[in-house]
């Protein structure tokens, strides 16, 4: 069903003039700076796409943002400053990784909390189960020998 997304992307793409993902002429001469630019642009969302970063996107706006990002870095911005520059204009929505703040505590800590709850429930279940049922008598030597042969056969 994911093709519906592509459909969406393509419909949107037809509304904007064509451009493509990272182009050679966009890249910075300085490899260290370019590497930083690539890393940042992987964390920024292409606003008109579904969960695609501006690094991957073919959208025109993504292209502009890639260029802008490189201009900022070339002008001496730190990574943080460059990201903040874009967030100031487009909001937290451009961050593929949502910030950790009270509104997102549930998002960020929910999975860990769930894991703890699930693990604790399983532990309680196993425990209670074993308390309510009496432990059977230990195996006799004969039974143990038979069991071992059986276990050997077992897959």
């Amino acid at each position: 069903m994911r093709f519906f997304l592509l459909l969406l992307a393509i419909l949107l793409a037809t509304l904007t003039p064509p451009a493509r993902a990272v182009e050679p002429n966009e890249m910075l001469k300085n490899p260290a700076l370019e590497a930083r630019a690539r890393a940042i642009s992987r964390e920024l969302r292409c606003l008109v796409c579904q969960n695609e970063s501006i690094d991957d996107s073919n959208a025109d706006l993504a292209h502009d943002l890639r260029l802008l990002l490189r201009q900022r870095l070339a002008a001496g911005d730190t990574d943080r400053q460059a990201i903040d520059f874009i967030v100031a204009r487009y909001g937290d929505f451009v961050l593929l990784q949502p910030p950790v703040e009270p509104a997102t505590y549930l998002l960020w800590f929910g999975p860990a909390a769930l894991l703890i709850v699930a693990a604790a429930s399983a532990a309680i279940f196993v425990n209670r189960r074993n308390r309510t049922l009496r432990e059977p008598a230990p195996l006799s030597a004969e039974e143990k020998r038979r069991l071992d042969t059986l276990l050997d056969e077992r897959y």
């Binding site: 929505f93 593929l96 990784q97 949502p98």
Partner: peptide
């Protein structure tokens, strides 16, 4: 607020 939840979130959780 409007947020995006992208791959970095899933990578970390």
């Amino acid at each position: 607020p409007k947020l995006s939840v992208g791959y970095p979130f899933f990578d970390r959780t």
